[in-house]
Design a protein around this nucleic acid. Structure first.
Lengths: 265, 265
DNA sequence: AGTCAAATTATCAATTTTCGGAATGAATAC
DNA sequence: GTATTCATTCCGAAAATTGATAATTTGACT
């Protein structure tokens, strides 16, 4: 039961509905929405209908219950990307890339692929480059593993079994049980590594960027040629990455204007 | 094409603005928004003001330019998470698209048009793209044919006669009796093909996704440039599609309500 | 199969919003 | 110092939202 302050316009209601649906783990009926948000039933139907027409909500296949729609997911991915591409957050990314001395990138998952929204390369192209806009599979990237590891147990297993675990290199994990085991470990540990599983000769690791209520927002990762850093040595990147992720978590909720009170030149 | 001014309500405008801001790499002024979206300037200010009040947009660095707000970022993170929790459908779709090597999509019929709810493209854009949210006519798409073929005889004929059998290419079936005959065959066979009937140079086929009691829920289809796969060769896609459809039938209707097994301290 | 409660859809008049032109104030560029 | 662009205010007309009531369908449970 979330508190609502005042009578709201259509915009508030629309976002309230979207927010409610996004917060549920299962598809919800219109009646549930109406009840949860104290809306008159016909009104709830009309609003939900509007949202459905625009692709912001959509019916779960074969039922009348609703889940988040495609347009909304696309928009959300864009928003996350834009949020991290502001000057301040990009600076954090650049700083950690400089500290580590390797290419760093921020990625989110959309449509079951990892989409990279921002990246910083420290030197000229070498090894793997995740450029913003590119996409990579879930099962052989550190970011993908983190996302999967944070799913509830049942859903995680079902998703794993539904995925086509395409083999990209000799090291790609193609066995479901092996992957699940690794994900369980990833969940406990809180970060992920990748050992030449997507591109031969490239290893990497990633940590989650979470909101204050521990919601996963994105992942911060690093990719490096194995010739320069071994798989085992990756561990030393984790602390700096976690510090940067914590910083990003904080700034993500700050109004960008607050603490920039220092006069620059 | 659809150059018409879509009579946009406040909701459309709000999302258009949010989408525009999320697409920019730098902060944008209200004037830019108004110009880009062809809004009257005072209207743009009012709408942006509304969005700012709700934290969906915020001013950047004390200037009067806007970036995405943190409420919007929070919501987006939740949406991404919610979408990911219910991503098995997409995973199955991606797997079959990978197996077949062509673009696959899931479509449902709503208001006598085929609405595509999900799609996976395997390579760069080529040929036809059914993007989620788009709609196509019944009589010249495989999904539409399957839907019609499963209607009771009377209703099927009545629907056929009430449809405007618009001609899109030379191959579009515009004769009602011809179509009914084809539908009868489709019904017996259990799947449908389309031979450049909607878009020139694009052929496709589809199979039904049914509920446990054999009700039609949606259709799983593939679209491919005829230059790569001939109309006759489409048949080889049917078995993989049917396997994937069976998988979707099983997994879709399970209520994932019980998998709240996450216990994170 | 039959029954009943719940959910969904439809209808409609009063109300509340929104809409955007014109005018004015503020900020920036030249 | 002037010119230009941008931001803001005001307000009547027009349109959309709203939610009570009621009809219809769905689904669940004997």
């Amino acid at each position: 039961m979330t508190e609502q302050e005042r009578a709201a316009g259509p915009l508030d209601r629309a976002f309230a509905i979207v927010g409610y649906v996004a917060n549920q783990t299962k598809a919800v009926s219109v009646a549930e929405i109406a009840n949860a948000l104290s809306l008159p039933v016909p009104t709830a139907h009309r609003l939900v209908g509007n949202l459905e027409e625009r692709g912001l909500l959509q019916k779960a296949l074969g039922s009348k219950r609703y889940v988040v729609g495609n347009q909304l997911v696309m928009l959300s991915a864009k928003v996350i990307g834009a949020a991290f591409r502001t000057a301040r957050r990009h600076a954090v990314l650049r700083a950690v890339a400089g500290e580590i001395g390797e290419q760093c990138e921020i990625g989110v998952v959309r449509d079951n692929v990892v989409a990279y929204v921002d990246s910083v390369r420290v030197s000229q192209p070498q090894g793997l480059q995740f450029n913003p806009g590119e996409a990579a599979p879930l099962h052989c990237t550190s970011t993908g593993k983190i996302y999967m590891s944070r799913l509830p147990g049942r859903a995680r297993e079902k998703l794993c079994r539904s995925l086509a675990l395409t083999s990209y290199t000799d090291n790609t994990i193609v066995d479901c049980d092996t992957l699940l085991k690794l994900l369980e470990e990833t969940r406990r540990r809180g970060w992920a590594k990748t050992n030449e599983e997507y591109v031969k000769g490239v290893v990497g690791c990633a940590v989650p960027i979470v909101s204050p209520d521990r919601e996963l927002i994105a992942c911060l990762g690093v990719s490096v040629p194995v010739a320069r850093v071994s798989f085992a040595e990756l561990d030393r990147f984790i602390p700096p990455l976690q510090r940067a992720a914590a910083l990003l978590s904080q700034t993500i909720l700050q109004t960008d204007s607050e603490d920039d009170t220092l006069e620059d030149t």
